[in-house]
């Protein structure tokens, strides 16, 4: 076969061009993937990511995202007051695409940092920060608490139920108020004992005191106690098991912690929220503004699984689900404690 030398040269040039193009494309792709690499981050609050409750719920959500997508995220657990601002800023500086600030206490720091980095997306849970690059996610805890309160009133034999709150803040009073409304909706004559564990953040992590508070309620005749108290709630659940009484868990599904003595758990789906934040930010559908998650959005709810199915009778399930529908449709209005800092029922 006779090949023209010129064509060889042409071929060579052609080859070179192809290789070059290849390299260019490769470099572009790499550069693109660099720019595209999604970098999410989360700043946990003082409770730490293993607080068995709120922070841990967030962590469960972010972990789910990591397992599904294989995308790693950066995280930090705040230990000093000044670190909130420091690490929110550091994560923004490092080019994070989305930073979740966990808990209301981070709001002042986020306010500052989010205005410094208008191109970074931030989501804050349990508080509203009004900035164009911030998404604020809040829950209608009163609705979920209403449901478990109603269930408690159906289940209670003594007509007395209890509530153990963590730190005495409006947010926890919102839980309490929804719960009492739910109880009174079923049994207007019921007594609800209400106690708060403390007035400082230490109240989130004091299971011994939680247990004592619950025990004092059981001693006074209550047979079901709802714990909205973070790690303190573990003591409440323990006290219920030790005294052959019932408890109600909070935030995540806590039915499995003391199987058979946890009547149900008031689910506050912070895990779904944090998962959704990462997911939508990754897909480009993340939006700033206020997101309110209630029963209708499945942001709150109640749990039924193999650990408590023996405790909740069929007609109770139906009645609770009916109330759920009524709240979603607006037939039942649940008062929000934080709307006027007071509760119509005690």
């Amino acid at each position: 076969m006779n090949i023209h030398p010129e064509s060889l040269i042409v071929q060579e040039i052609f080859m070179k061009k192809i290789v070059l193009a290849f390299i260019t494309v490769a470099v572009m792709c790499f550069g693109l993937s660099q720019a595209m690499a999604f970098k999410p981050a989360v700043v946990f609050d003082m409770g730490g990511k293993f607080d068995k409750s709120f922070n841990e719920g967030i962590w469960n959500g972010t972990e789910k995202f990591r397992k599904e997508t294989g995308i790693k995220y950066r995280e930090f657990e705040v230990q000093q007051e000044a670190q909130r601002e420091q690490f929110l800023r550091k994560l923004a500086q490092r080019g994070s695409d989305i930073v979740i600030a966990v808990g209301f206490a981070q709001a002042p720091a986020l306010q500052k940092v989010a205005s410094e980095f208008p191109n970074t997306k931030f989501s804050i849970i349990d508080m509203v920060v009004d900035l164009p690059n911030v998404q604020s996610i809040v829950f209608k805890e009163q609705e979920g608490s209403f449901l478990v309160g109603a269930l408690a009133a159906m289940k209670s034999e003594t007509g007395k139920v209890g509530f153990v709150g963590g730190m005495d803040i409006p947010l926890i009073r919102r839980f309490a108020c929804g719960y009492v409304q739910g109880v009174k909706h079923i049994n207007p004559g019921a007594t609800v004992f209400q106690k708060m564990t403390g007035t400082t953040p230490a109240a989130w992590n004091d299971p011994a005191r939680g247990g004592e508070l619950a025990k004092s309620m059981y001693d006074d005749g209550a047979d079901i106690v709802y714990a909205a108290a973070g790690g303190t709630g573990l003591g409440v659940l323990q006290a219920a098991a030790d005294n052959n009484k019932l408890s109600i868990g909070v935030d995540s599904n806590q039915n499995h912690i003391q199987p058979g003595s946890v009547l149900t758990s008031m689910l506050k789906r912070v895990d779904v929220a944090s998962y959704e934040v990462f997911k939508t930010a990754n897909e480009g559908t993340w939006k700033s503004g206020i997101k309110v998650l209630g029963l209708a959005e499945d942001g709150v709810g109640w749990s039924l699984d193999q650990h408590n199915v023996g405790l909740v009778e069929k007609d109770m399930i139906m009645r609770v689900e009916m109330i759920r529908g009524d709240i979603i449709s607006g037939k039942i209005k649940v008062h929000d404690y934080m709307s006027n800092n007071s509760c119509p029922v005690q």
Binding site: A105, D168, I169, P170, L171, T199, T200
Partner: peptide, 20 residues
Amino acid sequence: VYLLVNVLIKPGQMSPETRE
């Protein structure tokens, strides 16, 4: 704790803190 919770707290907020 007493002062911040009962006296100095900025009304209607979560953390027992004064206003800025």
